[in-house]
Computed example of a mutant assay.
Amino acid sequence: MNPNFAIMMANLEPEEAIFIQSLIKDLDEPQQQQFLAMYQNKRRDTTLILITTIMGFFGFAGIQRFLTDRIGMGILYFFTGGLCLIGTIVDLVNYKSLTLEYNRQVAAEILTTLKLWSNR
């Protein structure tokens, strides 16, 4: 892997970085660079999800669900006060897995898009 890619991947969680490396290993260097640029723009940081989950305790429940493209759950959390704070507490414990799941989904979508572009 190109040293510049290592710099781009430095802010990823270790498990996330391993997943991304396994996804892009079969791509050529320009495709890898394009993938990483697109991924950096669309991924969510665990700190952002943690902060928005904590905001659920202060009346803004569900923001973390909106950020991870779970709109239905976000609306439900918003109108039920984070499912009476129980859902917010569960999300507070599981914020890293919420983020990782979202980021994996985004990576798969980007990879599919790149493969479609390369087949043209």
Score class of each variant (00 low, 15 high):
F19S: 01
T68N: 13
L116D: 14
Q105D: 12
T46R: 05
A108P: 02
F58L: 07
F79C: 08
E16L: 04
L92P: 15
D91A: 14
M8Y: 02
G81P: 15
K115L: 07
V93Q: 07
M38V: 10
L100P: 03
F57L: 04
I7C: 02
K42G: 10
K96S: 12
L100E: 12
L111A: 14
M38F: 12
N103G: 15
F58E: 03
V93I: 15
P30D: 02
T47D: 13
I71P: 00
P30K: 02
D28R: 11
P3S: 01
Q40L: 11
S22N: 15
G72F: 09
L50H: 05
V106S: 12
R120W: 00
Q105S: 15
S97P: 04
R65G: 07
L100R: 02
L116W: 04
N94K: 01
Q31P: 08
T80C: 04
T88I: 10
L67K: 06
A6T: 12
P30R: 00
N41G: 07
G62K: 04
N119V: 11
N4P: 00
Y77I: 04
K25T: 03
I20M: 07
M55H: 02
G56T: 05
I110G: 13
F79I: 15
L114T: 09
T99L: 02
N94Y: 05
S97I: 08
G72M: 08
D45I: 04
D91N: 14
Y102E: 11
A37K: 09
F5M: 11
T52N: 05
K115A: 01
G74Y: 07
T113H: 14
G82C: 10
I110N: 13
P3G: 00
L100H: 04
Y102P: 15
G82K: 01
G56A: 07
L76F: 14
N119Y: 05
L50F: 10
L50K: 09
L76W: 13
E16P: 04
Q34L: 09
K42Q: 11
T112C: 07
M8V: 06
L98A: 07
T47K: 02
G62I: 09
K115E: 09
L100Q: 03
I20V: 15
L83K: 03
S22D: 15
L50W: 01
L12F: 06
Y102C: 11
F66I: 00
T46V: 10
F57R: 00
M55C: 10
A61I: 09
A10Y: 11
S22L: 11
I51R: 01
Y77T: 02
S22R: 13
I7D: 06
I71N: 01
G74Q: 02
I49H: 08
F66A: 00
K96R: 06
F5I: 05
F58Q: 00
T88H: 02
D91C: 13
T68V: 10
W117R: 08
I75L: 12
D28N: 15
N94E: 12
L116I: 09
F57T: 01
Q64R: 03
R43F: 00
V93F: 15
L85T: 14
L114E: 10
T80K: 11
L98F: 00
G74S: 03
D26F: 02
V93T: 11
G87M: 08
F57D: 03
T88P: 06
G87E: 09
